[in-house]
């Protein structure tokens, strides 16, 4: 069996735990413990004073202890939130990864790289609330205020009330904002990895007569695959958690899981249901966890 550690690097059994201990301690206190509490709360009533099953009423559908999950998964609102979350995942994750890769590769070849990258990164620095303000100006129905309507006015299209358009188009408009913000993130990580590809390899293939496209597909891309997997994983998580943009811009039926969770927590005061939604988010991440374990194994085997 192949181990991670080079054979020559002997270690005592506690060496690894020395390196892990500080991080683990904080993780347990700040993340793991609250998560377990959330799981517990998801089985409790809205004010957490009794078990969820005690809220069941005779003659009505009830999932007993999992009653909060029934409400989180089967109501109309739930379907809307799940559909929108799926739409966000399908569009935003590939969208930001591809755009980020494109920017990282393109800007790598120009002398004003630093400036160009700052421009793409800037939306991240503005913060989500700031970004939402900007785009509220863009989508404003009044052509004197909304720049998108003003722009369309120039080519003769009348003003549209963008955020009131029918689902799923209105969610797409919000996803555009999300991509505008998060592409700076994917670009930065991918760019860091791109710089890590040894120059010799790239130069060698150029000398061998490969054109730029071939250099990209045959040399850079294979080297970037681990990073793209990391970025894809992170973006999946970030997309599942997307909240501010939807919350601040608000349209008809644009709710996603995270906004539903916050509504239930602070507006509807339903702690149990809110916790159930949080647990659903965690469950949705399991396929991603599985994928990462596979990557982990592949990576180890390759060394």
């Amino acid at each position: 069996m192949k181990t991670t550690t080079p054979a020559v690097m002997r270690q005592k059994w506690w060496t690894a735990w020395m390196y892990l201990a500080p991080a683990l301690a904080l993780l347990i206190i700040f993340v793991l413990f609250p998560t377990l509490r959330t799981v517990y709360l998801s089985l409790r009533s809205s004010d957490t004073t009794q078990w969820a099953s005690e809220q069941c009423r005779a003659g009505e559908t009830c999932w007993g202890l999992l009653e909060n999950y029934r409400q989180a998964l089967t109501t109309d609102q739930a379907t809307t939130a799940l559909q929108n979350t799926a739409l966000w995942l399908v569009v935003m994750v590939p969208g930001t990864v591809i755009l980020g890769l494109l920017f990282a590769v393109l800007t790598d070849r120009v002398r004003y790289e630093s400036l160009a990258k700052s421009i793409i990164f800037a939306p991240m620095a503005i913060s989500f609330v700031g970004a939402s303000i900007i785009w509220r100006f863009v989508y404003n129905p009044d052509p004197d205020i909304g720049s998108l309507n003003a722009l369309l006015g120039v080519i003769g299209i009348g003003p549209q009330t963008w955020l009131a358009t029918d689902p799923p188009f209105n969610s797409m408009l919000l996803i555009v904002v999300g991509m505008w913000v998060w592409t700076g993130f994917t670009m930065t990580i991918i760019s860091a990895a791109l710089k890590g590809i040894p120059t010799e390899i790239i130069e060698a293939s150029r000398v061998d007569g490969a054109n730029e496209w071939q250099v990209f597909t045959h040399v850079m891309l294979p080297q970037l695959v681990p990073t793209l997997a990391v970025v894809g994983t992170t973006m999946t998580i970030n997309t599942l958690k997307i909240f501010d943009i939807v919350w601040v811009m608000k349209g008809i039926k644009t709710d996603v899981l995270a906004t539903r969770m916050i509504s239930e927590l602070y507006l509807f005061r339903n702690n149990g249901l809110s916790a159930a939604l949080a647990v659903i988010l965690i469950i949705l991440i399991i396929p991603v966890m599985y994928y990462n374990i596979r990557q982990f194994n592949i990576q180890e085997a390759a060394r």
Binding site: Y139, N140, P141, D142, T161, W162, L163, A164, G251, I252
Partner: peptide, 13 residues
Amino acid sequence: GGADAAITTSFGD
């Protein structure tokens, strides 16, 4: 002024 404008115009505006 119609439903679309009512829903998307902030109450402050």
